[in-house]
Amino acid sequence: MSKRKAIIKIKPNKYANGEVVKVNLMVMHPMETGMRKDKETKATIPAHYINNVKFVYNGKVITTMNVWESLSTNPVFTTYMKIDGEGELSVTFTDNTGEVNEKSIKITPKG
């Protein structure tokens, strides 16, 4: 697994069991469309984009995404999830070159 930089943020910072929270994922990725040309060499820059994102909360798949090259460079994905016990939210994202990355965050409900 390579180490592409990513951030997962849960909003609000403090949450309780049963609460629906916002999950923000940001990834550093060029999201090349395969249609841009290199300014100097005039060669087409090959397509390079995230094609799949999977959110797993305590072993249960809660959200999956098929992604295409139209998402902006350094893409942002915002979804929601219902807090259901302490544990981990783990996000796996792959790109069209076969690169696989994983990023996770601890889920610790208060009260």
Partner: peptide
Amino acid sequence: ANGKAMFATRI
């Protein structure tokens, strides 16, 4: 399990 049917991104 999402609890809310909402999604945001940038295209």
